[in-house]
């Protein structure tokens, strides 16, 4: 859970960096997207490193989901429905930790939609295009407010997922010590805020006409 989560967080940060290229214009954005296909070339065949990354990411996602389902099933077994508390009160748990399971499902559904939308372009609100820049600009026009809304909600859910996930991964990997607990939580909060804002800026900039 922790290791695959860490891989996915590192990927998200790289992905966010790429997205922010939108503010450098169409040429920079499309050029960056194209350069991803040539990463490692000519050492590796064209698209080689991209496919290696895709396989690593897919494996991470699948292992992450498997671990999550196993933890969920164990929790269900450890406190079956008949043994639920009649009155239950949250004492310390954060809202972020509360959203981990259903938020994870939402994120998984979003990722599928996201790939169909902006990677393969099978779903193309506002028209298909070979330019990643145009796909993005077309997809987040004000008339497709529902696409933007789903995107915004999903990214906020990703932020909450990271807020608890990064802290939890660090604790699982043994990094937590009493005097460090505040620092680890601050790191988790910091990264999740940066990632949330970094992913929200490009589509909102399109919707509000700052990028066209």
């Amino acid at each position: 859970m922790a290791v695959t989560g860490a891989i996915l967080v590192l990927y998200l940060i790289a992905h966010m960096y790429g997205n922010l290229k939108i503010f450098s214009g169409q040429e920079a954005f499309d050029g960056y997207a194209h350069s991803l296909r040539e990463l490692g070339y000519p050492m590796l065949p064209e698209n080689g490193l991209l496919w290696i990354l895709r396989v690593v990411l897919l494996a991470s996602v699948l292992i992450h989901i498997y671990a999550a389902v196993a933890l969920w099933a164990r929790a269900r077994r450890a406190r079956p429905a008949a043994q639920r508390y009649k009155v239950n009160k949250r004492v310390a748990r954060s809202y972020a930790s509360y959203t981990m399971r259903y938020g994870g499902v939402l994120i998984a559904l979003f990722v599928i939609f996201h790939i169909l939308h902006l990677t393969t372009n099978h779903i193309a609100p506002g028209g298909r295009s070979d330019s990643p820049y145009e796909r993005l600009v077309n997809g987040f026009q004000p008339e497709f407010w529902y696409v933007t809304l789903f995107y915004v909600l999903s990214v906020i859910m990703v932020g909450l997922h990271l807020r608890h996930g990064i802290w939890s991964a660090l604790a699982t990997l043994g990094a937590n010590m009493s005097r460090r607990q505040g620092t680890l939580n601050a790191i988790a909060l910091g990264i999740s805020l940066i990632v949330t804002v970094g992913f929200l800026l490009p589509p909102l900039a399109v919707t509000f006409g700052l990028v066209s």
């Binding site: 933890l71 077994r77 450890a78 406190r79 310390a92 748990r93 954060s94 930790s97 608890h164 939890s168």
Partner: peptide, 15 residues
């Protein structure tokens, strides 16, 4: 013993 798995939520230490 069929205890659940830890997800570092922190309710335990709080109570």
């Amino acid at each position: 013993e069929d205890f659940g798995g830890c997800t570092n939520i922190g309710e335990c230490a709080a109570v």
